[in-house]
Design a protein around this nucleic acid. Structure first.
Length: 590
RNA sequence: CGGGGCGUGGCGCAGUCUGGCUAGCGCGCCUGCUUUGGGAGCAGGAAGUCGGAGGUUCAAAUCCUCUCGCCCCGACCA
């Protein structure tokens, strides 16, 4: 492809509104253009990278034995009603009706396709002999995001690979799941991504085992807890905290004292007013567990983890209590609850941190009052089996698997594999007959990859001050030919010849045939990040040489014109296969 | 949905508080000459309903009301 025949609108300045590197660079390099909040046009360069990511995903899915099909983006609303997901998705589901003659047909744009695929399978799979099978598609998904942001990282329309496995047993599901897990590792490896498989909540979609593939990045929306020593990694919602020595400090127990704290209902207000530390406060949260109020005690500076609390309490549903419930239960408005005397009213649960606390400050269960000098065991008690890990991990917490400590990192989620079970097969009657002529619901697994996020995640973690640094696998073009002087006939003759022969050798070549100054071309070359830059100029040609330079290296190298095509083809072939040079650069960065 | 910010040629911005001549600047674009290995110089030129509607005023980019859009933080979320 010749630059002058393409549409590559590079920009020197970054449009206002773009803040994170991947967004800025995708705009500046002319990869995408925003159409509205959460919707982007992929320009020629961006589309080529997107297609390359898509192709890698497709190849590895095929290699893992999955079978491709394509489901529609428009779906009948009735399908979503059958599984109760009209309510579950809420406004995220894009619904509309179309008029057909004298009736109205309610539809939804697919935010994911469990319903459609399960309905399909219910029609065509009825025997254990037809399984296991894994079906997948690469399709545009639609989610009315409350707040689209970060360029193509969170949009209302995005390209997703979604796969679904159908199995007759849990053991078989495990095999399908493992095959997908391994395929995901190969996909992200091939894309040159540095990623982390992390334990995750399966979320409202249901299921029991779940793993997210995360790209550690400062601008990621998710938080993962990671142990650099043993490799334990989990989504913050899921991350366990190792037990540590809970021995309380050997200090003299103070007497309980009631103090006035007018209008100070938050930890921050109380610490400011009383001059105490959040670490010495007991935060008392009133939750409704399946409709029954419970009190949860946490150290003042900790965040509650509702998933952990819900599991500890053995509840199906858990939500913070409404103000009127809190008033009734504690006898005080929101912000003044405390554990003293609470056990007589409602069940108490406590985070293990409480065991190490002495002389605490906490709510007095009375408006505008707190108490100090409160001590576990003397002033209130929590049943032994009601202590547990109920909070979010923080950096420096003990690793649950080894003796090291957890670090918290932001990350971008690019993939998710999880075991679905029979939620959808039961709702949509996808059943099979086993060898004993018994009817069972099909056991499902579900596996997604955000294709757009592969690109954004790569750019987010792989760029420098000048622009994007693509690995060969995802680069829109593998080689950029830069003739230094397009008006010079000998130069252009060599350039045209190289261009034709490299293309013949099966290499994706872009030739910057613009009549522009060297600086302009070099800067754009760095910005769009093509891995191998080949400079053809009168200066080198005099010696029968060309200059080649990898985007991620600072120095260039002169090669003989005679053997240039073979040399370049060999280099690209090597990088395609192993990405050795690209990886070495990344390792050096880290 | 709560809080904050921004809408002025294709892009980035100044001007708005304190209303007043023909709405400026940089980049980009077009023409010509010179230049030519890391974002060239000179000269000339095209291009703007100042997001939209209504109002106040002799006069509105500027003040008032409403409205639309975009971005950030939070809440929410496959």
């Amino acid at each position: 492809m010749r630059w002058t025949r393409n549409l590559i609108p590079t920009m020197k300045e970054s449009p206002e509104g773009a803040e994170i590197p991947s967004h800025v660079l995708m705009l500046r390099a002319g990869l995408v253009n925003q159409v509205m909040a959460g919707a982007y046009t992929y320009l020629p360069l961006g589309l080529r990278s997107l297609r390359k990511a898509e192709r890698i995903v497709r190849e590895e899915m095929d290699a893992a034995g999955a079978v491709e099909l394509l489901m529609p983006a428009i779906t009948p609303l009735s399908l979503w009603e059958q599984t109760g997901r009209v309510e579950a998705f809420g406004d995220v589901l894009i619904q509309f009706t179309v008029r057909r003659q004298n009736r109205k047909v309610p539809m939804a744009l697919g935010p994911t396709h469990e319903e459609v695929i399960t309905d399909l399978v219910a029609h065509f799979i009825s025997s254990y002999r037809q399984m296991p099978i894994t079906l997948y598609q690469i399709q545009t998904k639609f989610r009315n995001e409350e707040r689209p942001r970060f360029g193509v990282l969170r949009t209302s329309e995005f390209l997703m690979k979604d796969a679904y496995s159908f199995n007759t047993s849990v053991a078989s599901l495990d095999e399908s799941y493992d095959a997908m897990y391994r395929a995901y590792c190969r996909i992200f490896d091939r894309c040159g991504l540095t990623y982390l498989p992390v334990e995750a909540e399966s979320g409202p979609i249901g299921g029991d085992a779940s793993c997210e593939f995360m790209i550690p990045a400062d601008n990621g929306e998710d938080t993962v807890a990671h142990c650099p020593d043993c490799g334990y990694a989990a989504n913050l919602e899921r991350a366990e905290i190792g037990t540590r020595d809970c021995a309380p400090p050997d200090v003299k127990l103070e007497a309980v004292k009631k103090v006035a704290t007018p209008a100070a209902g938050s930890i921050a207000q109380v610490t400011a007013m009383l001059g105490c530390k959040a670490e010495s406060m007991i935060k008392t949260l009133i939750y409704m567990a399946d409709g029954q109020p419970i009190a949860v005690l946490l150290r003042g500076d900790r965040e509650a983890n509702e998933g952990k609390i819900r599991r500890a309490a053995g509840a199906e549903r858990l939500e913070l209590a409404e103000p009127d419930v809190i008033q009734r239960v504690t006898g005080a408005p929101v912000g003044f609850a405390g554990p003293v005397g609470m056990a007589e009213k409602i069940p108490l649960w406590a985070d293990r941190d409480l065991l190490a606390m002495r002389n605490c400050v906490t709510g007095a269960n009375e408006a505008d009052m707190h108490v100090t000098g409160v001590n576990l065991g003397r002033d209130f008690n929590v049943p032994e089996d009601h202590f547990g890990d109920l909070r979010n991990a923080t950096s420096g917490d003990p690793c649950p698997r080894c003796s090291s400590r957890l670090t918290l990192r932001h990350a971008i989620e690019v993939g998710h594999v999880f075991k679905l079970g029979t939620k959808y097969s039961e709702a949509l009657s996808a059943r099979f007959l086993d060898a004993e002529e018994q009817l069972h619901p099909i056991i499902m697994g579900c596996y997604g990859i955000g294709i757009n996020r592969i690109l954004a995640g790569l750019i987010e973690t792989c760029h420098d001050a000048s622009g994007i640094i693509w690995p060969v696998a995802l680069a829109p073009y593998e080689v950029l030919l830069v003739p230094m002087k397009v008006t010079d006939e000998p130069t252009m003759k060599v350039a045209d010849d190289l261009y034709a022969r490299l293309r013949q050798a099966g290499i994706d070549v872009l030739m910057d045939d613009r009549d522009a100054r060297a600086g302009v071309k070099f800067n754009d070359a760095d910005l769009i990040g093509i891995p191998l830059r080949v400079v053809i100029g009168p200066r080198g040609l005099k010696e029968g040489k060309l200059e080649i330079k990898w985007r991620w290296e600072s120095g260039a190298e002169m090669i003989d014109l005679e053997t240039a095509v073979e040399q370049i083809a060999d280099l690209i072939a090597e990088e395609r296969a192993e990405a050795t040079r690209f990886r070495a650069r990344q390792a050096a960065e880290a």
